[in-house]
Computed example of a mutant assay.
Amino acid sequence: MTRIGIIVGSTRPGRNAEVVARWVYEVAAQRTDAEFEIVDLLDYKLPVLDEATPAGFGNYSQPHTKAWAEKIGSLDGFIVVTGEYNRSLPGSLKNAIDYIYAEWNNKAVGFVSYGSAGGVRAVEHLRGIAGEMQLADVRSQVALSLFTDFENFTTFKPADLHRDTLVTTLDQVVAWSNALAPLRAS
């Protein structure tokens, strides 16, 4: 069965990413074409990158890196939930991506973002990063507004239309994850 990780891309106290990721999971869990799980960056306690060699060599020395690599390596695709911080992605998410390399390769990724402009600028940066990590990013994206999809910027109340976009994003991530399976197997 195809395994998709829903990455909670923020570690900030009071973050919105966790509740958005739970919403993604609730919608995804109704599907029968893949298994979904939430992967929370907070659970991996990754300090600012502390590996002596570049991730591309795969010589991970730190226990937290090895645990992170094992989790990401066990998955076939991803939905990344990210806020937009200062017109880009959260530093904690970029740090987590940079820790490892081969574990990302030949997998699909979709994005659910939020922010004052729907988080679209964070995702534009993530798309470039995804290409470097040999992740196939899907076209569909859920872009949530802090003004209309969150009450008082904190209580998540997504507009109904976002569910349909999320379903399309999930469809694409599952399809591309399956299509890339032969590359992961070789």
Results as ranks from 00 to 15, higher is better:
T165S: 09
A130Q: 01
Y99C: 00
V8A: 11
V138W: 07
L166K: 07
G77A: 11
A108R: 10
G5Q: 10
S186F: 09
S186D: 05
G77Q: 07
W68P: 02
L41G: 10
E35H: 13
L183A: 13
N106I: 00
A67I: 08
T169A: 15
D40W: 06
F111W: 14
A136Q: 07
Y101V: 00
N95Y: 02
V27P: 04
E103W: 01
E26A: 15
Q172F: 07
T169I: 02
G9Q: 10
G119H: 07
G118K: 11
F150P: 08
N59I: 05
F36C: 07
S186V: 13
D137S: 15
V27T: 15
R12W: 09
A130K: 01
V138T: 14
R184P: 01
I72F: 06
A117N: 13
L146I: 12
A130F: 11
S88W: 00
A102P: 00
D43E: 15
P13G: 10
D98C: 04
A136H: 12
P47C: 10
W68T: 03
A122I: 02
L144I: 09
I4H: 08
G83T: 02
H162Y: 09
L170G: 05
R15N: 06
E84L: 06
A34T: 04
A52H: 08
T154E: 15
T169P: 03
G118Y: 06
T168C: 02
I7T: 07
T11Q: 14
N105M: 11
K45N: 14
A96D: 01
P182T: 11
V142R: 06
G110W: 09
D43T: 08
T165A: 12
L41D: 06
F36V: 06
L135M: 10
E51P: 01
G77W: 03
L144S: 10
V20A: 08
F153M: 12
A52K: 15
N178L: 12
K107F: 04
R12Y: 11
A34R: 02
V174C: 08
V173P: 06
G77T: 09
S116R: 12
A117Q: 13
E18D: 15
N16M: 05
A143C: 13
L180H: 10
T148V: 02
D40T: 09
V27F: 09
E51D: 04
H125K: 02
G9E: 08
I38V: 15
F111M: 08
S177P: 05
I6T: 11
V24D: 07
L183I: 03
G14H: 10
F36I: 09
L75N: 08
L170C: 06
R163N: 02
L166M: 11
F150R: 10
P90G: 08
A130P: 00
L42K: 15
Y114D: 06
A29M: 09
M1H: 12
N95H: 04
F153N: 13
K45P: 00
R163S: 02
T154I: 12
L170I: 15
V80L: 13
N95K: 07
R121S: 07
R184I: 05
A179S: 14
F147W: 13
R87Q: 11
